[in-house]
Every structure is written in structure tokens, then in C-alpha cells.
């Protein structure tokens, strides 16, 4: 895999919202499941305080184990790696009811994070899909340092204007500085809605340098229904368009990673 200068062997893909509620968590779940179906070993990892990624995989809402508890109790990563009933692995963020200390607010936690994730990062042929926090923090910086690719999720609606400005001014430079390749992905696309079509045309006019991922994830009512059932949409309705979109995204990610490591190999 990517034997990059980042001192790791696994491939790390980060997914982040450009503005709130753009759908990064859903994308992380779908992408990890699609990569697993393609016989890659992909693990979805939640770095968001909401801790909602695990619900996609069927975890009980009352179960609060996760990274938080692992850091608190100094456990190993395997103790917090769970598997859905259909065999998809994931690592929840976890919650502590009496915890005033927010993970990622200072740098001292980050060395603990590195120690916790070290065994996973050292494994070859693993895809780690991270659900990144949207706000700048030590955790986000830590994650950027380890990411090969960051996919920024945006929806074709009026909020994208502010979101894009913030992305280009602030987020993109930070991701690039951390040596992560940054991309934009359109989510919840509904071409039958006129406003959506206009927004899509606008965004395609604005972003022309290959930063836009060449596919889109369609709006699909199957996604919230699958979430309500707490199972991946691939299990809930295999014929849904969302499943096909996630498969395409997984193919693109695999291809992009292969190209980047080939390019890196040439430079080195």
C-alpha cells in the first residue's frame, strides 16, 4: 500500500462536511461497506462527537464504548473494534456521560491517539475511513496528518456558497499543508429538482481543476430508512441507487490511491 512519508502502511481516507449535515457520516458508512464488498479490508472510524457512525452498523444507541473509553482506560484498539452482524468492521467514537474533557481539545491526547491507532496504521492493505470532525481542533489536525485523501462533502443547495468560500480559504490550505490530497464530492443530488440542477451547474462552473470527484451520490430515501433500521443500505436494499453510487465511489478511491502511490513511487 502507501508506504508514504507519513510513517504508516495502511491507506487512510478522511471524509468531512463542508457545511453541517452534508452527509459525511453516511458516506463513510457506505464507502466502507462498498470497499469491503470489493474484498478490500476497510474499517470505518468515527472521530465525531456525535458518535452516530456506529448506528449505521447496528450498534445499540445505549452502548457507549469507543475511542473515548479506550483513551480513558488505556485499552487496545481491538477492544473497541466492532463488527456489524453482516461482518463490516467499525470503530465508534464512544461517549462518557461524566466526561467534561472533550477529546481533541489539546495536543496531549494526540500522542495517546497515535499510540492507540499505531497497530492499525502499521497494517498493510487496510483502508481506514475516517469520519472527520468539521471544526478545527487538535483531533482534526492529527487526522489530517495521517490522511492520504480527504473527501469534502458538499450538497448542491444555497448553503454551498459560504461553505465553498470557507473551504478554499481555510480548509483546503490546511489539508494541503498536512500533505493530504483534497477533493470535493457532491452528495444528496436530486436532478429532478430545478434548484439542485442550477446549483450543480454553478458548482461545476466554479471548480474546474479536477478537484471535484467525477461522480455524485444521489438523493435516496433508502438511506434514512436504512439508518432508521440501523443497518447498512447495502443490506437494507441492495438494488438502491445509493449502493451503486457507493460502489462507484469505492472504485474511484481505490483507483486514486493506486495512482497516488504510483506517482509517489516515481518521485522517490
Amino acid at each position: 500500500m502507501t508506504a508514504s512519508e507519513k510513517n504508516k502502511a495502511a491507506t487512510v481516507v478522511g471524509v468531512q462536511n463542508v457545511f453541517g449535515g452534508a452527509g459525511a457520516t453516511t458516506i463513510v458508512a457506505g464507502l466502507a461497506v462498498a470497499l469491503c464488498a470489493m474484498e478490500y479490508r476497510a474499517i470505518a472510524i468515527d472521530l465525531n462527537r456525535d458518535n452516530s457512525l456506529c448506528l449505521h452498523f447496528g450498534m445499540e444507541p445505549t452502548d457507549t464504548k469507543g475511542i473515548v473509553s479506550a483513551l480513558r482506560n488505556d485499552s487496545a484498539i481491538l477492544d473497541i473494534t466492532f463488527e456489524s452482524s453482516t461482518g463490516y468492521p467499525f470503530i465508534p467514537m464512544g461517549m462518557m456521560s461524566d466526561d467534561q474533557h472533550i477529546i481533541g481539545s489539546d495536543e496531549s491526547d494526540m500522542s495517546k491517539m497515535t499510540r492507540l491507532f499505531a497497530p492499525l496504521l502499521a497494517k498493510q492493505e487496510r483502508f481506514l475511513i475516517l469520519d472527520l470532525p468539521a471544526e478545527e481542533s487538535a483531533l482534526q489536525r492529527w487526522a489530517y496528518r495521517h490522511c492520504d485523501i480527504v473527501i469534502n462533502i458538499v450538497q448542491p443547495e444555497p448553503r454551498l456558497i459560504r461553505g465553498l468560500t470557507r473551504y478554499f480559504v481555510d480548509t483546503l490550505p490546511r489539508q494541503t499543508e498536512a500533505k493530504a490530497h483534497s477533493y470535493l464530492l457532491l452528495n444528496d443530488v436530486a436532478p429532478q429538482v430545478l434548484l439542485q440542477r442550477d446549483s450543480m451547474d454553478f458548482i461545476r462552473g466554479q471548480i474546474t481543476d479536477g478537484r471535484l470527484v467525477p461522480l455524485m451520490v444521489n438523493r435516496d430515501q433508502h438511506l434514512p430508512e436504512a439508518f432508521a433500521q440501523r443497518c447498512p443500505v447495502k443490506i437494507y436494499q441492495p438494488k438502491a441507487q445509493a449502493v451503486r453510487d457507493f460502489d462507484a465511489l469505492a472504485l474511484w478511491v481505490a483507483h486514486e490511491v493506486a495512482e497516488l502511490s504510483a506517482a509517489f513511487g516515481e518521485e522517490a
Binding site: 436530486a190 429532478q192 444521489n218 438523493r219 435516496d220 430515501q221 433508502h222 438494488k239 438502491a240 441507487q241 445509493a242 449502493v243 451503486r244
Partner: peptide, 14 residues
């Protein structure tokens, strides 16, 4: 050619 179909309830199928 692969396309998708969206019905009235918002469900999209491949």
C-alpha cells in the same frame, strides 16, 4: 446503460 429511477416517494433504484 446504467441509469437510476426515482419514484414519487423519493426512493431511487439502480
Amino acid at each position: 446503460r446504467p441509469i437510476s429511477v426515482v419514484n414519487a416517494t423519493g426512493h431511487s433504484f439502480a
